[in-house]
Every structure is written in C-alpha cells, then in structure tokens.
Design a protein around this nucleic acid. Structure first.
Lengths: 143, 143
DNA sequence: TTGCTCCTCACGTCACGTGAGGTGGC
DNA sequence: TTGCTCCTCACGTCACGTGAGGTGGC
C-alpha cells in the first residue's frame, strides 16, 4: 500500500480531490486559511497530505452550504483546529473539572455550527414546501 | 387604506423591505435582473411597488439558499416571469392539448427548482448528522 | 429652510479566473 | 528531451461597498 499521507500530493491533486482549483488553494494560503505547507523556498512546489484534503473539503463545504465569508471561515476553522488541542489536553488531565471545561468548549463549538446548519435547513424546507404547493396547483389546474 | 401597490416605494424602502441595500437594487437593474422601474429621466428617483418587493425577495432568497450566480438567477427569473404569460395563455385557450402543454412547461420549471432545493437540503442534512454525531461523542466522552 | 434620501460617477474590495513568462520533476 | 504541472506576478471579473459631489421631495 502506497502511503498517500506523507505530503505526496501536489497542488493540482489536492485541488482536484477537494473539488476546486490550484488558484483557490494558493489564495486560501495567502489569506491564512490553509497552512503554508511547511518550509518552502519561493519557487518550490507546494506539497500536501490527506489531512490537507480533508481540511480543504470541509472549508469548501461550509462555505458553500452556509454561505460563510472566508473571514468567518477562518474563525470557524480556528474552532475546528482547537479540537486537536482539546484532545491532547483531555489526555493530559484526569481532573474532572478540567475535563468538564474541555467538553463544554467542544460542545459550544459544535452547537454554534449546528445553529447555522439548522437555520439554513429550515429556510430550505420553507422554500421547498412553497415550490411543492405551486407545483400541486399547476398539476391540478382546472381540467 | 393607503394603497401601497402603486409605485409609491422609493429605492431605500424597497431595499429595506427586501433585506438588502439600494446599491444592490441599482446593480441588479444595471445587469437586467430587475426592471428599470418604468420610464425615468436620468437623475430622477426610481419608484417601486409591492410586486417589486416580492420579486427582489425571491431573487435574494434563491441566491442565498441555492448559491446561484446573478447570471443563473436571470435565467431562473425568466422562467418565473413566464408564469404570467402562461397564466394568460391558459385563460385564452380551452384546447386541452394547449392546456396540457402549458401545464407541462410550468411543472418543468418548478421541478428544475425543486431538484436544486432538494440537493442542497440533502447536503445540509448530511452535514447536520455528522455534526450531531461529533456532538454526541463529545458529550459522552469517557467520564 | 433644514434633513433626509435620492442621484450619478468612480474607485475599492472580496474571492477568485486567467493569461504571461519561466522553472521543475517523472 | 518532451510534456505536463508547477511557480510568481499581475491584470480581469463578479457582486457589490463606499465615499464624492450634487439634486430632489416631505
């Protein structure tokens, strides 16, 4: 099994796997939404791993589905990145109060995302039922 | 009752009622997404009615919820505008074949919108269930 | 008459797209 | 060596935001 995970991806592959373009990847790096791919001399090729694909996919998904700006996305992704930190903190303590704090933080982050998702879903459902109603009226128009 | 319907609205009121800005209204007019508000000398104030509020609201809603570009929106709204035409044609004929054709057109338009709405809703539901799963795992993290 | 809103340029911004000209790796 | 993809500017585009300077209606 060839390990795909060790920075073996070039920018074109990353973009293709995530469903976007190299230009978008470079732009996200420029504004600090994606990491700079480690140390790299100017002119050298960027390299990525499977984790970068996941992160980019999540960014594009939240942007598309929730309509967030890249500035808002940056904040959200900081909350996502804090996940790894919390995971480590969780392992390093056994204090119940500490663990409770970490858990509360994680839940707050997920809940704030869920609020946005549910609001959108509600709006889409309202739109869907209006369209269905119109469809039914058109379908059963007098004879 | 003061009739709100007779072009008594100025651009600021239209924008406020539809949840956007005067600049956006002018831009949509410029690219042909909103009508030019009848005859008007350059420099004169634009005026709108309740129908314009409805149309603008629908445009903003489809743009936000479906992520359409203004070019795509223009096509969709042409399909919406054809509604009035179909309604008239429907009244003016009693030929069953003609009426069937009109009905088929209306259904095709609504179905194409419903496809987009349902696809989005499905994607949002998938995202929601992933977030809920993560939430549950965080909530019930060992002790 | 005084505010407030409107008008038309026109430049700025966000999130990229699209060449231009050159270098790097299978 | 030949393609293909990559690199860095840098200008273009879409969908507006934001003044600048002036005019219009309750």
């Amino acid at each position: 099994m060839a390990p795909v995970a060790e920075r073996s991806l070039r920018i074109g592959e990353l973009a293709r796997l995530a469903g976007t373009t190299p230009r978008t990847v470079r732009y996200y790096e420029e504004i600090g939404l994606l990491a700079e791919g480690g140390e790299r001399e100017s002119g050298e090729h960027r390299s990525y791993d499977a984790g970068d694909v996941e992160r980019l996919r999540e960014i594009l998904r939240l942007k598309s589905l929730l309509g967030l700006t890249l500035d808002e996305l940056r904040r959200v992704m900081q909350g996502e990145d804090a996940r790894a930190v919390r995971r480590r903190e969780w392992q390093e303590t056994s204090d119940p109060a500490e663990r409770q704090r970490i858990r509360t933080e994680a839940l707050a982050h997920l809940d704030s995302l869920l609020v946005l998702v549910r609001r959108r879903k509600g709006e889409l459902e309202a739109l869907e039922s209006e369209l269905r109603e119109r469809r039914e009226r058109a379908r059963s128009a007098s004879a």
